[in-house]
Amino acid sequence: MSEQALHVQKPGWFTVNVFNRAVTWMTRRGISVWGSRVLAVRGRKSGEWRRTPVNLLTVDGDRYLVAPRGHVQWTHNMRAAGGGRLLLGKRVEEFTATEVADEDKADVLRAYLKRWKAEVGVFFGGVGPDSTDEELRAIAPKHPVFRLDRAEGR
Rank of each mutant, 00 (worst) to 15 (best):
T132K: 03
D130I: 06
D130Q: 15
S131V: 10
E99I: 05
K117W: 11
F95S: 08
K90M: 13
E93V: 14
T132F: 10
G126L: 09
G89R: 09
D133F: 03
D130P: 00
G126F: 09
V100Q: 02
E99H: 06
H143C: 12
T132N: 12
P129G: 12
P129F: 01
L109E: 01
L136D: 06
K117I: 01
E94L: 02
D107V: 05
A106H: 02
R137T: 13
F123K: 08
G125F: 03
K105P: 03
H143V: 11
S131G: 14
F124V: 09
E93P: 01
E119N: 09
R91P: 00
D107K: 10
L136Y: 08
I139E: 06
A138M: 09
R137L: 13
K105S: 04
A101S: 06
E103G: 03
K90E: 15
F123A: 15
R110S: 03
V100L: 11
R110G: 04
E99R: 10
V127D: 04
T132E: 14
A101P: 05
K114E: 08
E99N: 07
D130C: 01
G89K: 06
F95L: 08
V120K: 01
R91A: 15
R137I: 12
P141S: 13
E135P: 08
E99V: 07
D102L: 02
A138T: 12
R115F: 00
K105M: 03
A101K: 08
E94S: 07
G128F: 11
D104Y: 00
R137G: 05
V127N: 05
A140K: 03
Y112C: 02
Y112T: 02
F95Q: 05
D102W: 05
G128R: 11
L136H: 10
A111L: 02
L136V: 11
L109A: 07
F95K: 07
K117P: 00
E119F: 00
